[in-house]
C-alpha cells in the first residue's frame, strides 16, 4: 500500500470519529439552538440573569396556563388561575397547585413548553418549580410558584401565550442535575452523568 492510501485512510478514520462525536455534539447544539429560537417551545430550565429586563410601559399580554400529567402520574396538578393578564417587562408570580394523591413518597419533574414557539425566547423566569424536582410525601400538597417576565422584544403579533407544564413521575428515575433532594435510596445504581 502506498503513502497516499495510508494518508487517505487516516483522514477518513478521523472523519468517522469526528462525525460520531458530532452526533453527540448535536445535543448541546440543539439545546442552544432551541433556546435561542424557541424551537419546540422550549424555555431555559434555569433562572434568567438579565438585569435590564424590567421596563415600565410594557404592553398587555395574556397567559393561558395549561397542565398535563404524563402517563402513570396520579398527582393532582393544576394552575391556580387559568388565565392571567400581565404587562411585558413586569415580573409576575403565578402558582400551580399540586398534591400527591398516592400513599407513596414520590418525586416529580415539571417540563415547561410555550406556544406559540417564537414567544419562548422572550419568556424569562426568575424562579420556577420546573428548575428542580419536586418531592412530596403521601397526601402532601403545595402551591408551586413561577416568577416570570416577558421581555419587550416579544413580537407584536403575539398577544396571547400558552404556558404548559407537564409533570412526569421521576421517582425511580432521578436525574442528578435537577435534583435538589439528595435522597440516598433514590440514587442507588445511577452512576451515569446526566446528559443534558
Amino acid at each position: 500500500m502506498n503513502q497516499g492510501s495510508k494518508k487517505t485512510i487516516k483522514t477518513l478514520c478521523f472523519a468517522v470519529l469526528g462525525m460520531f462525536t458530532f452526533s453527540f455534539a448535536l445535543v448541546p447544539l440543539y439545546n442552544v439552538f432551541c433556546e435561542v429560537t424557541g424551537l419546540n417551545g422550549k424555555i431555559e430550565l434555569r433562572a434568567t440573569n438579565d438585569k435590564n429586563i424590567e421596563i415600565d410601559n410594557g404592553r398587555d399580554v395574556s397567559i393561558q396556563f395549561v397542565s398535563h400529567n404524563n402517563e402513570e402520574m396520579p398527582w393532582a396538578f393544576r394552575p391556580s388561575e387559568d388565565n392571567i393578564q400581565i404587562k411585558t417587562g413586569k415580573y409576575h408570580t403565578a402558582t400551580f397547585y399540586v398534591k400527591n394523591t398516592t400513599n407513596k413518597r414520590m418525586v416529580a419533574q415539571a417540563i415547561p413548553s410555550v406556544a406559540p414557539s417564537n414567544a419562548a425566547a422572550h419568556l424569562k423566569k426568575l424562579e420556577c418549580f420546573c428548575f428542580e424536582q419536586q418531592e412530596l410525601a403521601p397526601g402532601e400538597e403545595a402551591l408551586l410558584p413561577v416568577r416570570l417576565i416577558f421581555d419587550d422584544e416579544l413580537p407584536s403579533s403575539i398577544n396571547s401565550v400558552v404556558l404548559s407544564y407537564t409533570i412526569f413521575d421521576v421517582t425511580d428515575y432521578n436525574d442528578v442535575e435537577f435534583s435538589q433532594h439528595h435522597n440516598d435510596d433514590h440514587h442507588a445504581g445511577h452512576e451515569m452523568e446526566p446528559s443534558i
Partner: peptide, 8 residues
C-alpha cells in the same frame, strides 16, 4: 402530539 411539549 409530543409528550412534554405543546404544539398549536
Amino acid at each position: 402530539a409530543i409528550p412534554g411539549f405543546i404544539n398549536t
